[in-house]
Amino acid sequence: MLILECPYCGVKACETELSPGYEAHLKRFGPGSTDAEFEDYMFARKNPKGVHFERWRHTYGCGKWFLAARDTNTLEVFGTYPAQSSAPPEDLQAKIKAKRPDWKGYK
């Protein structure tokens, strides 16, 4: 039962106040994209044992979507940040790199 701090309202929300939204930082492929691009966008999801970036919605709170960096194995949470981010914040990436030297980056 995770606790994630909503970056908008600062509530340290219990998992039961949140809804999961799966992998973060997906790029949408619409009309004109190739079959391979669309397949990748629609179906190919990362499932790492280790550092993972996810979407969460503070459903029972302020209703906002946010992103979280989390270790899927230890459940350590490295940080949360607004959904209006096309990449994880630099300082968060540096923090993860320091804690998980083997980490290959968020892409």
Partner: peptide
Amino acid sequence: HAWMEDWLQCEWW
């Protein structure tokens, strides 16, 4: 409603 908010917050913010 959640679907609308998802697109507005996460894609077309």
